[in-house]
């Protein structure tokens, strides 16, 4: 007679081991996510501190005399670059993270506020020091293909025109009143929308050639 195999026992053992391995992966992933979040928080805090430092230095020079404009250009450019890096890391984090939505929204909010601060600095700098920067506010929708395509066009634009600074905002993000004010101020109803140099509003997807023309 053929020996009867207890396949149910085998299945239970397999299920048990699989659950253990997946739980271990999950815990490892969560702990790495926490590390990634902490790293981002450190970056954001550092950036906030840099902005504060810049403001204090500017105030100091204004009070005690000195050339604010020669100091400001490189400092603000560096700030914008750092904010951009945070944005890219946040973007990667968003695509890989399954959980922790609250945490992610908190980081996103901080990032948007940093961008608004950096944008204000750039606008002031352009007015006060006559710098030839192109600033673009980019309102996107994360679930929309045209926004993704517009993001790619903007990535290419930065490489062609390095003096362009882009500040991107999730149009559907509702958790921050300052961002809401920004949307009301520029009357943002659709995505993608671009505000170029605080003057020109572009409310639909635009190709690279036309965008270069608009920014000239």
């Amino acid at each position: 007679m053929v020996k009867e195999i207890n396949y149910k026992k085998f299945l239970l053992i397999s299920l048990g081991f699989s659950v253990i391995i997946f739980t271990a992966g999950l815990l490892l992933g969560i702990s790495l996510d926490t590390t990634k979040v902490n790293d981002l928080v450190v970056n954001i805090n550092q950036n906030e501190l840099n902005i504060e430092s810049y403001n204090i230095e500017k105030e100091f020079l204004a009070t005690f005399g000195g050339d604010v404009c020669s100091l400001s250009g490189p400092r603000v450019e560096a700030l914008s670059e750092e904010v951009g890096k945070i944005g890219r890391l946040l973007d990667k984090y968003e695509t890989t993270n399954l959980f922790e939505e609250n945490e992610f929204n908190y980081l996103k909010r901080k990032y948007f506020l940093l961008e608004i601060k950096a944008y204000s600095l750039f606008t002031t700098l352009k007015k006060e020091c006559n710098y030839n920067y192109t600033t673009i506010l980019f309102f996107y929708d994360i679930n929309e293909g045209n926004s993704l395509a517009q993001g790619n066009v903007l990535d290419a634009l930065i490489k062609i025109k390095p003096n362009t600074h882009i500040f991107s905002f999730d149009k559907s993000f509702k958790d921050d009143p300052t961002l809401e004010t920004l949307k009301i101020h520029y009357d943002i109803n659709t995505s993608p929308t671009l505000i170029i140099n605080d003057k020109t509003k572009q409310e639909s997807l635009i190709n690279l050639d036309d965008l270069i023309e608009l920014t000239n």
Partner: peptide, 22 residues
Amino acid sequence: YLFNFPSIRELLVNINVKLLFP
């Protein structure tokens, strides 16, 4: 211009350990 080489940091952030480990 769309082809960017990600930094090591970006690559590390991109790793999805929850899926990669099992």
